[in-house]
Amino acid sequence: MMHFDPMVPFKYWDALLIGLWMSLRLTLICLALGIALGFLTSQARRSRFMPLRALATFYVELFRGTPVLIQLFWIFYCLPLLLGFEPGNFASAVVALTLYAGAITSETFRASLKSIPREQYDTCRALGITGMSLALWVVLPQALLRAIPTLLSNAVALFKESALISAVGMADLMFIGSSISNRTGRPVEMLTAIAVIYFAVAFPLTRIVGRVEARILRRLAV
């Protein structure tokens, strides 16, 4: 019978914390950049200029239709060539996860724009609210409000996907945890500890999503 020592992970708490910080930092940076990219992409997909629309659609479908792992590998090898210099692992990881986040976020904005009832547009025309006023004061605030719960879910998804950067040698929670696991020969304790830490961050966030969603839906129920 194996002997388990649940205290093992606690001996390495400082290293794990550094790893978690890397995971969180990467998630937050890519989330912020991804939201901006996603909003621009969602607008590009509504553009009247066909090539722009096609390009935006291709980008979204490509990043939603391939494994994030291969996106990561591809960008790690391609970016230095495209840029002409070695941008470093962190920058490459940021680019890769931002492109992925932008693709899923653009879908979020597309859905939230679509969910604004047609009657809102009729009303605005009846009130003479058109063009920029319509976009700025009626459409954008409602689209943003409706997008918030999904944006939070995207944040959770991105946090989970960020574990992949361990595969390209970035010292995130997954990488540090599994290195310790290999070195100490304590996979059960260490890998479970990693899972628990990811869970401890992601689970409360998913609970908040439900709460926020209910509140927003109540506000928008007219």
Partner: peptide, 18 residues
């Protein structure tokens, strides 16, 4: 909740080693 709130990579690696 456990499967939805942890990375798939962690799940796969956990299965293989544990």
């Amino acid at each position: 909740e456990v499967f939805r709130c942890t990375p798939v990579l962690v799940q796969v690696v956990w299965f293989f080693y544990c």
